[in-house]
Write a protein that binds this DNA or RNA. Structure first.
Lengths: 209, 209
DNA sequence: GAAAACCGAATGAACATTCATTCAAGTACA
DNA sequence: TGTACTTGAATGAATGTTCATTCGGTTTTC
């Protein structure tokens, strides 16, 4: 289905060439538009023509780049998963003191929810789960592995409490963070910087016992 | 189909209103069926005829008791919200030591997810949120008030850390719990009793600093 | 000017809701 | 009590709507 694949170019003898003009352009316009409208209305709540309109593209054009809505959602999910992981955990200097690293990651998470609310919301959406294929689920799992390893290492070093499994610890912290942001978005709470820092400290307590 | 209901009435004199016999019966059959299928497939994923079938009732019958799918979802939400709150926080002896109370509520939460998975799943579902009306949202807010008051009281007594607002603390704990259960249901984790107790202790640490 | 990309109206499937009909239970009258 | 008539709950096929996807015609590119 997809197929980027630059038809071997350069060689003159290849008559295949043809035109593959603004592929990248429209394709990413569609992805970006989908991210926005899906984040706002949920995957099930948004018809394809709305995605097309947001992308300034004809409805049919979407199907030139994505075989179906389902495939579009999956591509979007994978693209975002990778970008987010890079953003949250990339370029971390693991030599720094643990507490500083913890604070830095927390800061990045908050920043991410502020600067890329659509991306964050889309990934936290539940209603696209039934759409996700094996590759997406696989990627989701892989993306978590390095962080899990960090938790384990910190337990072994005695920094984090070791009376529960690293998976459980990580799940608790992530859930606490996600629900905090959700409460704010749902209008149940309004969060000051102090609130966010205090929440971070509380999660640190959770980890260290 | 069913129907027992032997025209009670003894009084001869009241020729009043015909019969309104099995109302309660079908109405709750429909609610129960809806809870089950919505929990499994999401509100958007399940057509009304499927609800009807699960309830052993004609599709049209649903509309005798509920004006629309939206109203059905709202009634279900409110009914469950009340039942759950009673189940989690009802009959608590507030005189007992705080830690015992905390453990007891945690125990009830876990038990609830085990014994009434449909009810729990339905309430955690995100995809019915757009359906919820003002009354449902209001109820959701009210249901939280007493628990919030407890958190506040515990902060005042110095049991819980007081460097963050009670709303934030409560949100963190609830999020941690919900995500733990979600991870298990999604197959990311499998939880032993020991895991669950350890998670509880970690959340206690979160609260007490 | 041919090939590819693009478009959006048309299509058909799936859905929420309606309504003409059925029929069990209730009532009236003997 | 037995029989004819009334009522309205129950039904599910029919209706109108919404949506993902397709397709024939148009524009762009080389």
């Amino acid at each position: 289905m997809n197929n980027h694949s630059k038809t071997a170019n350069n060689k003159a003898q290849a008559p295949v060439r043809a035109a593959r003009p603004r592929i990248k352009d429209k394709r990413s316009a569609i992805l970006q538009a989908a991210l926005k409208v899906f984040a706002e209305g949920g995957v099930n709540g948004v018809p394809m023509p709305v995605v097309a309109q947001e992308a300034n593209v004809g409805t049919g054009t979407i199907y030139r780049y994505f075989e179906s809505k389902e495939l579009l959602v999956n591509e979007l999910f994978r693209e975002q998963k990778i970008a987010i992981n890079q953003r949250l955990y990339g370029d971390l200097d693991l030599q720094r003191p643990t507490r500083e690293l913890f604070d830095e990651v927390w800061r990045r998470m908050v920043l991410f929810t502020r600067e890329a609310p659509h991306a964050y919301r889309f990934m936290e959406l539940q209603d696209h789960r039934p759409y996700l294929d094996e590759a997406s689920r696989q990627l989701e799992h892989e993306a978590l592995a390095p962080i899990l390893a960090q938790y384990r290492a910190l337990q072994k070093r005695g920094v984090f409490r070791a009376d529960l499994r690293a998976e459980v610890l990580m799940t608790l912290v992530w859930g606490a963070f996600v629900n905090l942001i959700k409460a704010e978005r749902d209008g149940h709470i309004s969060l000051s910087d102090a609130d966010i820092d205090a929440a971070r400290d509380a999660c640190w307590s959770l980890c260290t016992g």
